[in-house]
Design a protein around this nucleic acid. Structure first.
Length: 574
DNA sequence: GCCGTTTTCGGCCCGACTGTTTTCAGTCG
């Protein structure tokens, strides 16, 4: 039986929902949600920890009881508490929680008083007037429900960072024109550079007579206003995105920005630490009693707790707070430290631009090198190159390198890892490349064991240099294929193989957790764009955001190196 | 249900907005 951390986290989250409906102790409910979060970002599978006899209670948010439940699920695939809850409470009720305006208390009421337990039944109750009899269900709430139920049950989706960031920036620009706006910034998960975001969070510092809220609730792309207060408003755009705006005074901007940036887990942890010292933190400031000791900057907030500044990308309560106290925070990589791109395509395979155009564009970015990595023959759909075409391209690169100034084209290819673990180019051709970027492009649906074996087998080839988009995920489109990432990372460390962080907006693969695992194992990372056009070279920003979330520093990323230092790393296996 | 620089019991981050409330509960972030 294969029980993943995601399965266990899903079970904990479902327990939390059901307990919530049942009206259980909110802190008990929170414990399940916290544990679910811990599991989702934990680098090792609980299954292997249980097999090793590891003490699960040493994990944060996991105590004796939850450790026992994790073990139970790993061993049997089930959790008795969840089964019991499902028996007691109809799991259909969870659907009702998704309706705006309906929380656990109202679900409970609906069921107890009217036996309403499904969206269908709620619609009926709304039509036949029985909802009006429930205390607290006034005209406005009924209208809210009618509107919500009239629409197709719109699941709040997550948007790719790449899609939502420019919209957030555009709104920020529009609002900065409003009267009395001193500063306005994007906060929330976009500021933390998560790969996807559910909504846009904005925070503004304004003078008293500002008209920013009026502007916000009448933006050109507005669909509807969800909530409209003096300091906080919430809207939905025509494209369905939710946007929240918080307004504070100028000297409260730092703590407000911090509050709205989150993550929630980071804020809670920080506030707990503060309260132990008799300090209170909220969005308006850091206080000892009535006295405000900080508020105008995030740096001041951290300083008030005797901590160094923690970058937004790290604020996930994943050890950054301890690291801050120990002065062991990473010096996160910055875009300006990138000296080249190690994964780009040209019109030889499925790219839009010629070799020359790609080279010129990279040069304009100030890069010192650019690796040409067109697809190989097996990937027909992308016009993969056969060996003769590869050799032809290598000659072309040699010629170009003769004339280019200031930038060097590196000879490479995105070589298919075939299903038997061999590579799609012969060693005689591989030998003529500067290095090889290897990747899985088909047969995703095989067992974890087979997929892991396939890649480990391919790594035996001495010309295997970089493993590209290691898990094959496409955000919102395709789940990562089953892979024993611990085993892959271990092998990379052993063989000096590099892992790619692919910057394509729907890949961002390695993810943040895997980046951190790689770093801790001493495995180096290549942050690459996988560009299919000159324009795509700009995607490097996406990869850097993810790298920072993965605690990566300049020294962990090989394309921060000078060309000679880079070549030394790329050729170390030969 | 977790956790410990007052503690193994008694806390648990903190506040805005809405609706229907005459003082606050529910929902949301």
């Amino acid at each position: 039986m294969n029980v993943t951390n995601r399965d266990i986290a899903a079970a904990f989250n479902e327990i939390a929902e059901l307990l919530d409906i049942e009206g259980a102790n909110p802190f008990r409910i929170r414990a399940y949600r916290n544990a679910a979060r811990t599991l989702l970002s934990y680098p090792k599978e609980m299954q292997s920890l249980v097999d090793e006899g590891f003490d699960l209670t040493s994990l944060k948010t996991i105590g004796k009881d939850l450790a026992q439940k994790i073990t139970e699920m790993v061993r049997s695939g089930e959790m008795k508490l969840l089964n019991d809850l499902k028996h007691r409470i109809d799991p259909e009720l969870e659907e009702l929680l998704k309706i705006p305006g309906i929380g656990p208390k109202r679900v409970h009421l609906l069921y107890e008083l009217l036996r309403v337990k499904s969206i269908q039944a709620l619609k009926k109750a709304l039509e036949n007037g029985s909802l009006e009899r429930i205390a607290g269900f006034g005209a406005k709430l009924l209208q809210t429900l009618r509107t919500a139920l009239g629409k197709k049950t719109a699941e709040r989706k997550r948007y790719r960072l790449y899609d939502i960031l420019p919209i957030a920036q555009q709104i920020t620009d529009q609002l900065s024109q409003a009267k009395g706006v001193i500063r306005i910034e994007i906060a929330g998960s976009i500021r933390r550079r998560r790969d996807t975001a559910k909504d846009i969070d904005l925070v503004a510092a304004c003078e008293d007579e500002s008209d920013i809220m009026g502007r916000f609730t009448s933006l050109p792309d507005l669909h509807s206003v969800v909530m409209h207060g003096p300091t906080r408003s919430s809207i939905i755009l025509k494209n369905g995105m939710h946007v929240d705006l918080r307004v504070v005074s100028e000297n409260e901007f730092g703590t407000a920005l911090h509050h709205l940036t989150g993550s929630k887990a980071h804020n809670i942890e920080l506030r707990k630490i503060a309260s132990k010292r008799g300090i209170k933190i909220n969005e308006y400031g850091v206080f000892i009693g009535e006295q405000k000791i900080a508020s105008n900057s995030e740096t001041a907030l951290y300083k008030a707790l005797s901590m160094p500044y923690i970058a937004p990308e790290l604020r996930e309560n994943q050890g950054e707070i301890e690291a801050a106290f120990n002065n062991t925070l990473p010096y996160l990589i910055q875009s300006s430290q990138i000296r080249g791109d190690l994964h780009v395509h040209t019109a030889y395979s499925d790219g839009m631009n010629t070799l020359e155009e790609m080279a010129t564009a990279a040069q304009a970015k100030g890069y010192e090198y650019l690796a040409i990595t067109d697809h190989t023959r097996h990937l027909h759909i992308a016009h993969g190159l056969d060996e003769n075409r590869v050799l032809e391209q290598l000659e072309q690169i040699d010629r170009l390198n003769g004339s280019l100034e200031g930038i060097r084209l590196l000879k490479s290819a995105e070589v298919d890892i075939l299903s038997d673990g061999t590579l799609d180019l012969s060693d005689t051709v591989l030998k003529q490349l500067d290095f090889a970027v290897c990747a899985v492009h088909y047969r995703f649906n095989i067992s974890k064991k087979e997929q892991t074996y396939r890649i480990l087998k391919a790594m035996e080839n001495p010309y295997f240099t970089i493993l590209a988009h290691p898990t094959g995920r496409l955000l919102g489109l395709r789940e990562p294929y089953e892979l024993d990432m611990e085993a892959i990372i271990k092998e990379c460390a052993h063989r000096g193989i590099i892992l790619e962080l692919n910057s394509q907006p729907d890949r961002l693969d390695l993810n943040d957790t895997h980046c951190r695992m790689a770093k801790e194992a001493g495995v180096k990372i290549a942050v690459s764009t996988d560009a299919h056009s000159t324009h795509d070279l700009e995607l490097m920003e996406m990869g850097i955001g993810q790298a920072r979330r993965g605690w990566l520093e300049k020294k962990d990323v090989i394309n921060t190196r000078s060309l000679p230092a880079l070549m030394k790393i790329l050729r170390q296996r030969r």
